[in-house]
């Protein structure tokens, strides 16, 4: 421990300029002058970000109306259909549709790279596997309750 303490002190001392300075990004990347953060030729990983561009608000409002309509439809179906596997199936289906709209429109997954899209959506197969596994177990429990 005695050896560690001065070490830590030195580290904090060395990091101090980066912590207290506002424009720490420029110091860390050894740029004397402000850099172009979107520059793809002189690529600098400490400051570089992809250039953001808006896709407009029209699609977002459309998604809002779809979500609102589906939620109202949920409530409407709750009071019109008889309870059972069919109604529950519709609710889950509508839930997945709503979730897809949120992910693809609000979270802009449509505009992401193909690889990212796949790596986010494909792992959901594990959830489907879990659902199948646990629901078959649940029906077995239900049988046990009847006995």
């Amino acid at each position: 421990m005695a050896l560690c303490r001065p070490c830590l002190g030195i580290r904090i001392y060395l990091l101090l300029p980066y912590i207290v300075t506002f424009k720490s990004y420029h110091i860390m990347s050894n740029h004397k002058t402000p850099v172009d953060i979107h520059d793809e030729v002189n690529y600098d990983p400490t400051v570089w970000v992809p250039k953001a561009h808006s896709h407009g608000t029209k699609g977002l409002w459309k998604t809002f109306w779809i979500l609102l309509f589906l939620t109202v439809a949920d409530i409407g179906l709750y009071f019109t259909l008889d309870p059972g596997i069919f109604r529950n199936g519709i609710f889950i289906f509508l839930g997945v549709v709503k979730a897809a709209f949120i992910v693809y429109s609000f979270m802009h997954l449509t505009f992401e790279h193909k690889g990212l899209k796949k790596s986010i959506v494909l792992p959901m197969i594990f959830v489907i596997y879990l659902i199948v596994l646990m629901l078959s177990e649940a029906y077995y429990w239900l049988d046990l309750n009847w006995l």
Binding site: G84, A138, Y139
Partner: peptide, 17 residues
């Protein structure tokens, strides 16, 4: 999803009203 699937499991193991 683990929490919700857990809920669904318990939920489906009971008969409906």
């Amino acid at each position: 999803s683990s929490l919700l699937v857990g809920y669904a499991t318990v939920r489906f193991s009971f008969p409906q009203a």
